[in-house]
Design a protein around this nucleic acid. Structure first.
Lengths: 236, 236
DNA sequence: CCTCTAAGGGTCGAAATGACACTAAGATCG
DNA sequence: CGATCTTAGTGTCATTTCGACCCTTAGAGG
């Protein structure tokens, strides 16, 4: 047993999935542990922090290793360091990230086509999580709490959507995050007044009245994260 | 040079000081470094995380060692871990804390009476900080940003005040944090509507019309910090 | 051509916010 | 004692925001 403290980096990776019943649900990837402690249990993706890598880079790297994707949003969640949270002394710097729904779909389609998907990675709906290793249940709960809070005063919900989207798409993302339905008219007013959206001259057609497509206004979006620069947080 | 990563814990400790011109200003204690790197420069109080101590305990301990006091509020701020933030590889888990103004006054009075104040600790107004070691300037700025944000939707400002206080005291704390004056009438309405205050039947007299004294309603106060329990955050 | 459904805009009352006037009450000074 | 000053605390009112709900628009599909 080592006498020193080791530093790990884990990430709560969230995206939206279209469920069988049609509505959007929050989903996250977990990794099946192959070693003790907690062998054969599911855990958050992560790894040890190396001496030549910053925590946010390590989070982005392990995220890419488990999903093959780059996140649309990545932010530090919390540093967990209770003495008894692991048999050996581990401080985990935990990040949370958002993935675009279409990125995830394209990636899983590529996995199906090539025939070799990562075997010990599986996606779970946040409403139906398995038993998790360590204190990872608490961590996931905290990440969801943070997401629900942050969606109210910032533009994080765009992190789930492709570059162009309708207001209905955006509202659906909000509803999945908050777990309640929102009035379409009031939602439109609020989000238009926030100035975070840039209307395009294109429309999505194919059913009923065509809906205008919007883009995200990245200029405004960078203002609400305080004095910590882009080296500590990333938005794409 | 060591090849491993060491974990430090530092704390931004804030309190209010009554300035010569009469208004309240934010103040924090800094420690003069005696060793390289950054010898003879001022730095945030802190120390190495030991293998048998949790980060929040380490923050409370180093806080007590530098000020002799227990904080009224203590919360994790951020984990800083950029590769180049120190000559050796150090991850700093930084906390921020609030001290009661009267606790600090009593402690410094005790230091004056006994004649032995801690020599390498000095208090600085946040508007007149010296050059700081490491990335501590950025850390202090982030802590102040967090305080200013949090004062808007939670009761943290009470952390500066004694158990009983007038609405003018509380408003003065808000004004010092936000850096702007607030309308007394509207401030009263808001804070009364929040339900965070319990009126007592006592008044502060001595000048003009007596002002009612209030206490903080600790029952309501514990709700706004998410699923992280009191083992990670403390309010007194 | 009629109908269905979602997009998008308008209305209206409730609630919150901000500016500011007004009353209450002790301190101080003549 | 009484006038006045200063701060505590209340009231008012216009503006803005929020939520609920209705109405019109426009393409899809019979």
């Amino acid at each position: 047993m080592t006498r020193s403290i080791r530093v790990a980096v884990s990430t709560v990776i969230l995206t939206l999935r279209r469920s069988e019943s049609g509505e959007a649900v929050l989903t996250l990837p977990l990794v099946l542990r192959t070693r003790e402690p907690f062998a054969d249990q599911w855990a958050l993706p992560g790894g040890w922090l190396t001496v030549d890598e910053s925590p946010v880079d390590a989070a982005a790297r392990t995220l890419a290793e488990t999903t093959g994707l780059a996140p649309s949003y990545l932010e530090q969640l919390y540093a967990f360091g209770a003495v008894d949270r692991s048999p050996t002394r581990v401080v985990s710097i935990v990040y949370w990230a958002l993935l675009r729904q279409d990125d995830v779909d394209a990636q899983s389609a590529a996995h199906l086509a090539s025939g070799h998907a990562p075997e010990n990675v599986r996606w779970f709906d946040v409403g139906a999580l398995p038993e998790l290793a360590f204190d990872h249940v608490k961590i996931v709960e905290y990440a969801l709490w943070r997401l629900r809070n942050k969606v109210g005063y910032s533009g994080v919900a765009h992190g789930f959507l492709p570059a162009e989207f309708t207001l209905a798409d955006l509202r659906e993302a909000y509803e999945a995050i908050l777990g309640k339905t929102l009035d379409p008219a009031n939602f439109r007013r609020q989000v238009e007044a926030s100035g975070n959206l840039l209307p395009t001259d294109r429309f999505r057609t194919g059913s009923h009245r065509p809906a205008r497509l919007y883009r995200y206004n990245t200029d405004v979006a960078l203002a609400d994260r305080g004095p910590l620069g882009p080296e500590e947080t990333s938005i794409r």
